[in-house]
Amino acid sequence: MKPNLSERLLRSLCYALILVWCCVTLVPFVWLVIGAFKTSEDFFSSLFLPAGEGFLGIAWDRLTWNNFSKLFIEFDFSNNILNSFFIASVTSLLSTLTAAMGGFALAKYNFRGQSVITVIVLSALVIPHTLLIASQYQLLHYLGLLNSYSGLILPALSPAFGVFLFRQAMLNSVPNELLDSARVDGCGEFRIFFSVVLPLVRPMIGAYLMITFLYAWNNFINPQIVLQDAEMLPLSVAVAQLRGLYLTDYGMISAGTVISILPVALLFLLLQKEFISGLTAGAVKG
């Protein structure tokens, strides 16, 4: 049915609003990307592109790849990128697995102490993390986990939020009858978990992977505390350290940030559909 005039007006209005919002959102990005190509002298001389005698009144020749090359040559950026990939991917995969297992246990079984544990999980959601940093640091030392990737990854494996999301997802999407018939067929519990349950909550897996990957990728406080060797530091810390004492090279920070955004943006595109439908499956019903 072809839209009538008032509907078309409404649609144009909608498009206009969306475009306005997208522009507002994108302006800082544009600034960021342009900044990555500016030298430090030029960085604040003009708002976006440096003015000059080039095409359209812009000094195209003053834009440079220097910031990027410096990052890889003078700083250890390729190593930092490798570290970030490692930490973020391993953390997100293990964290998702732990959360899915925990959510499964709480959703599809009845056992003594279930409500106690559920309350514990829920309360873990409301504890301010900053409260625990000091004690956690000492604890890591006593366990010998300082200056190792395990010290970063292990504490992330108690994801209360994740357990909560997966519990909701499984309550909604995993029918008990399916589980029972699998058991009757002689499947072990683990086999059921991996072959039956996980595929059913596939969207939630995608969603939670995205959330944890993003958080681990951008986290710059924890790695600085736990890791002592410069070689092990991830991108987030490397970019944070670009802020100097006497001098801050904004061009390099922009370049570093641009590099840092590309992988997560790619991941978002890959997981987009599931990210959204996964949260549907986790919709709270009270």
């Binding site: 490798l82 570290n83 991917s89 992977l209 070689e231 991941l267 890959l270 997981l271």
Partner: peptide, 29 residues
Amino acid sequence: QRFSIGVVVLLATAIISSLFIWIRNDASE
């Protein structure tokens, strides 16, 4: 069949990066 392409990519990333880090000679500080 069971997992989306995003998951596969992540798994691959995790495995490959682990290999690289293992190989990388973290200079015996």
